[in-house]
Amino acid sequence: MLYRFKSQATADLVMLVADAQGALRLIGKDLTPEGVISPDQLPWAIDILQHAWREDNDLGLREDTYATEQLAEQDDENPDVRLSQRLVPLVNMLELANKAQVAVVWSAS
């Protein structure tokens, strides 16, 4: 299942269900098949997601120091994509919608 985020300010954004639901939980939204982040909710949602991004990124930097030492021995492993990387497109969409003062809606399919 996928979640599609739409806004008049940007192109559509498609996210995997786990990533989209994680982001929606962070901003306190119910995990409904359809919903909206209104223009007045956008600044708060952006702040929450940016805070989560910073925390996850800081954790990743600390882990990367250790992982770099480990990867020297195991070149064939691919690191997982972190939460902070998965949030970037959604945060960008919310920022552009906030500048345009338009809502962001989502639907699950």
Rank of each mutant, 00 (worst) to 15 (best):
D47V: 09
N98S: 06
A97T: 00
Q50N: 07
L83R: 15
V17W: 11
D40K: 01
S84A: 14
L49D: 03
L26R: 09
A72V: 12
Q74Y: 05
V105F: 03
V14N: 15
G28S: 06
R4A: 08
W44I: 04
V17C: 12
D75I: 07
I48L: 01
L90G: 03
M1R: 05
L42I: 03
D56V: 03
I37A: 00
L90Y: 07
G22C: 05
D19V: 13
N98G: 02
D76F: 12
P43Y: 05
R54D: 05
P43D: 03
V88T: 13
P79Y: 15
N57H: 15
D40Q: 01
V36R: 02
G22I: 04
Q101K: 05
A45I: 00
E73S: 03
L31P: 10
R86F: 13
E95Y: 00
D75L: 06
R62C: 03
G28Q: 13
K6W: 03
D80H: 09
T65N: 10
T10Q: 02
L13C: 06
Q85P: 05
K99G: 00
V17Q: 11
D30E: 15
R4N: 11
V14R: 15
S109N: 13
M15Q: 12
V36A: 03
R4W: 14
Q50I: 06
K6C: 03
L26G: 09
P33A: 11
R82N: 09
A97P: 00
V81I: 14
S107E: 09
K6N: 05
V105I: 06
P43W: 06
D47R: 11
V88Q: 09
L24Q: 15
R86Q: 13
K99H: 02
W44S: 01
G60F: 12
V91Q: 01
D12Q: 08
D58W: 15
E55P: 07
N98E: 02
A108C: 15
E55C: 11
P89C: 08
E63K: 12
P43N: 05
Q41N: 04
S107W: 05
L26V: 12
V105N: 04
F5D: 02
A72K: 07
G28N: 12
D47E: 13
T65R: 05
D47G: 08
E95C: 00
L16K: 11
G28A: 10
Y66E: 14
